[in-house]
Amino acid sequence: MSKEQLKNLETQFEARIARDEKIEPKDWMPEKYRKTHIRQMSQHAHSEIVGMLPESNWITRAPSLRRKVALLAKVQDEAGHGLYLYSATETLGISREELYNQLHTGAAKYSSIFNYPTVTWADMGAIGWLVDGAAIINQVPLCNTSYGPYARAMVRVCKEESFHQRQGYEIMMKLANGTMEQKDLAQDALNRWWWPSLMMLGPTDAESIHTEQSMKWKLKRKSNDDLRQQFIDQTVPQAELIGLTIPDPDLKWNDERGSYDYGEIDWEEFWQVVKGNGPCNRERMKARVGAWEEGEWVRDAAMAHAEKKQERKQKQVV
């Protein structure tokens, strides 16, 4: 293909997206589009499955049977969402094994919030309420993203996730309305998860490298800072409603902007966690790699069995 032809194809491609047309797997797409989507979609998938770990940590210790089944179902959903997203990524010509390999070798990233430890039961509430809350803000616009398989996966994910945040908020509410000890648990969890949740919405616009291109491809509809503001504005009243205090002395309603002003985020901490120096980065990776390696003989056995069955079937035909 000549340079000019390529340019032509690219122009047509961008025009299709601008017209809100969806791109499907077999359609021609610029290499950069494919690579960017593999990166973002797999990062999203990795976040789902690494995100299972901090919560699965409390499944065996959930305080009631009702909480236990709800948490199990939630963590299971995350496995499902990881699966939908890996499958969607595979339509771009990369296998799940390759994607896992990128995760396990550190070549691919996942949301850094999952590198924080879940130390009390209240963390299940805080994660559902704050982390899933922030995730939803990020995800809803993606239901309309330009790549068809990603958009379809996100529609399913968003539909299923609607119970996750409610599950978390209900846990917090119950704690906040409980004994002093329970209230302390809730406040402590909010204190620890608030700032990482704000960081989860990504670096400030000035530092964000992918934003402009991503906006064009509808991988992003709003800037990180806008999303963060939206999250804060919607979450502060929810905290007030159950009598919890947001751990930010600079948090103040700004009448003029119609939004909350908030204190400075410790971006040094954010970048350290991204680089692998969070409290649980190593543990999380060990758990993922461990499960994959320990499962190898199981996966191999299933393949070997399937082949034997196939052979037997063929012999019968002969």
Partner: peptide, 10 residues
């Protein structure tokens, strides 16, 4: 329930 998140495949 202990196994959730640690199985041989998703």
């Amino acid at each position: 329930g202990e196994l959730c998140g640690h199985g041989p495949s998703l």
